[in-house]
Every structure is written in C-alpha cells, then in structure tokens.
C-alpha cells in the first residue's frame, strides 16, 4: 500500500510540473526564435570557417570548446567505466560464439563499415554527419566482430593508444594557435573553396581526431561492458 502513496505523490507533482512547464512555454512563442546569435552565425559562418555545414561550423569553430568537453566526457566515462569494470572482466566463463550468419557477416561487413566511417568523418564539414557519427560507425566495425565471437581478443592496448593520442592531438591543434598569440582553437590553414574536401582550414583535422577518438573509445567501452557481462 505504501507504494501507491508514493506513486500518487509522484503523479501529482508530475502533473503540476507539466502544467507549470506548459504555462511557461506559453510565454515563449513557437517558431519565432529570437536567433540573436543564430542569425549572426548563419551570416558569418561561411566567411569565418569555410564550412558548408553550419552545424559543423558551430561544433568545431564557434563552439569547439564544447566539442572538446564532450570528447572529454566520453573519455572520462570510458575511463571510469573501465575502472569500475576493471576487476570484473577477468575470469568467468566466456560466452559462446554467435551463430554462423552473424559470424560471417561481421567479418564481411568490417571493411565496408571502415570505409563508410572514414567517409563520414572526413566529410563532416560538408554534409550532415561528422566525427561522432563516423566514429560510432568505426566503433561498430570493430565491435561487431567481438559480438560475433566473444572469445576473439579485443586489442584494448591499441584502442587506448589511439584514444589517448587522438585526444591529445585535438588539444595540440588548438594550442598551435597560441604560438601566433591567437586564442585557443583558432582555425589555421586556408579556408579553401567552399564545398571541396580540402576546405574549412583545420576543422577536418579536428574531426579526424574526434572520429578516431570516439571510434576507439566506444569500441573499447562496449567491449569492456560485454566482457564484464560475460564474466558476470
């Protein structure tokens, strides 16, 4: 019976919260965003960064530091998960191999996933997508084989190396600007011709670093969780 009171209280507060939130949103007209900054960015982005994809221009240019932060969070989460699971993955029975279809498909898909991931990473400044999306595909390329045959060793060492150096490279690219007494993460290289692969200055370099880092991190993280689960 105790549980019902709790649920009732929850529902009551949630109803209140919902009504209040709707009341507040009433005061904010929909579809007429003030766009103080948004409009300015849309106008200035091609000139400032050379990227076609304005969201990319924001992610890597205007708000590059956010992206560094988000990469760091992934890294911290992976490191913390690794530490938490550290003792768990050792020992314990390994799960059995998956069936033939998944097993074969995993290895068959591997090169395609690799290429697709690389493409998406490298075209992040031109089309939707970018380092995170591409990195996720790269991670899947490496993780699917682990899923197919849990006994196959996942090379955590390499993943860690890639992860560490890619992350450091992101910051290093940012710090290079300080040599010319510019601010952190100021783009360098020419902006190039809009729409070309080699354009938008150093932004693709950052995306490459992100792609590698995210790919190795996600792959390592998932391998570790699945290993821990298998060991449990």
């Amino acid at each position: 019976m105790k549980g019902y009171g709790h649920t009732a209280a929850t529902l009551l507060f949630l109803t209140g919260l919902g009504i209040l939130l709707i009341a507040i949103l009433q005061a904010l007209p929909f579809g007429l965003a003030p766009m103080q900054v948004g409009q300015a960015i849309v106008a200035a982005a091609p000139g400032d960064t050379g990227a076609d994809n304005i969201v990319t221009a924001i992610l890597l240019g205007y708000r590059g530091l956010d992206t560094l932060g988000e990469v760091t969070i992934l890294f911290v989460a992976a490191a913390a998960a690794g530490m938490v699971l550290g003792g768990a993955s050792r020992g314990g029975a390994q799960a059995e191999n998956a069936g033939f279809i998944l097993h074969s498909a995993a290895y068959l898909l591997f090169p395609f996933l690799l290429v697709l991931g690389a493409y998406i990473v490298l075209h992040g400044h031109l089309t939707p997508g970018g380092g995170f999306q591409g990195g996720a595909i790269l991670a899947a390329a490496f993780f699917v084989p682990v899923l197919a045959s849990p006994a196959s060793p996942f090379n955590h060492r390499t993943a860690m190396l890639v992860e560490g150096f890619a992350g450091a490279a992101f910051i290093m690219i940012g710090l290079v600007s300080l040599v010319g007494s510019d601010a952190f993460l100021t783009p360098f290289f020419g902006k190039g011709e809009a729409g070309a692969l080699f354009s938008a200055g150093s932004l693709p370099l950052l995306y490459l670093a992100i792609g590698l880092k995210v790919g190795s991190e996600l792959a390592g993280l998932m391998a570790r969780v699945s290993g821990a689960e298998a060991g449990a």
Binding site: H6, F13, L14, G16, L17, L20, A23, I24
Partner: peptide, 19 residues
C-alpha cells in the same frame, strides 16, 4: 531514497514561488 521526488517537489514549489 525518494530524492528525485523531493527534486520534483522543490521544482514545482519553486516554480509557483518564482512564478
């Protein structure tokens, strides 16, 4: 261990208060 509930409570009361 109902802290999220307290959180909701405070948000609701706070919204009324600030509102």
């Amino acid at each position: 261990a109902y802290t999220p509930l307290y959180m909701l409570l405070v948000v609701v009361l706070g919204l009324v208060f600030t509102g």
